[in-house]
Design a protein around this nucleic acid. Structure first.
Lengths: 123, 123
DNA sequence: AAATTGCGTAACCGAATGATTACACATATA
DNA sequence: TATATGTGTAATCATTCGGTTACGCAATTT
């Protein structure tokens, strides 16, 4: 797993646009949520938002540049498809700290149970 | 779990500075990495970076504002302590898509080795 | 009491970001 | 062939971001 994180960190330094930046924008997160369910054309995506189509086009470009989606020409339309595996680096980075928050929750639970037994002893 | 994600999304919409924005900046990610190991004073954190102390101060403020760290006065120093559980919303958001990438991946190892060869090509 | 230290913040600056409108161009349709 | 549709992109703009220097203030040290 250390190797994974190492690769992740190296990758983040190499990429111009990294995954963290990509998912920092709420519109882009919504786009990801949409495309997680189904492959959509650029226009279909744009219609779900209040912002203009060119704005969505740019967001899609960013998502494409960091590998989170692919855009495939089909006639005059472009199909946007999610590439979920490219979320993994971000996932791994956060997951490093999972044991940290779980440890503290555990110790909190232990603390609570200790309190409870103590209370029972006093009763 | 669905409830968690619902809460997460609502939370993200309410917060001015959200966790995703906080971890979008590489300096702030490094700060988190530092504080994951130990509680540090503002100056100690600043000394680990090339940027000025006020710049670090701002980063710390942002991390504080979205709950990822707490800053406690101790004499004239300020102790910065990680609050890892506040990374959970970001973790949960990405984790929604975990089954998606796990379904499509033949094996995680393959993915990583591909990444590694890609990195070597880029060098 | 005076000097030093740790830190926050204001003022400022250049670059990046996210949005818009206008346009170009390929593809489908009439 | 003429028109309509789907899309990318250039030009432009306001805002945000991340950095700096200069300063102020509280707490410690001398």
């Amino acid at each position: 797993m250390i190797t994974h994180i190492f690769v992740t960190n190296r990758l983040l330094k190499i990429m111009r646009r990294d995954v963290f930046q990509a998912i920092a924008d709420p519109v882009r997160r919504e786009i990801i949520e949409l495309l997680a369910d189904e492959t959509l054309t650029v226009n279909t995506v744009a219609q779900k938002f209040d912002v203009s189509r060119p704005a969505i086009s740019k967001h899609l470009k960013i998502l494409k540049e960091c590998g989170i989606i692919t855009i495939n020409k089909q006639g005059r339309e472009r199909l946007c498809q999610i590439q979920p595996k490219n979320l993994i680096p971000a996932f791994l980075w956060i997951e490093q700290y999972r044991n940290l928050w779980e440890d503290r929750l555990d110790s909190f639970e232990n603390y609570l149970t200790k309190l409870q037994t103590k209370n029972k002893e006093n009763e």
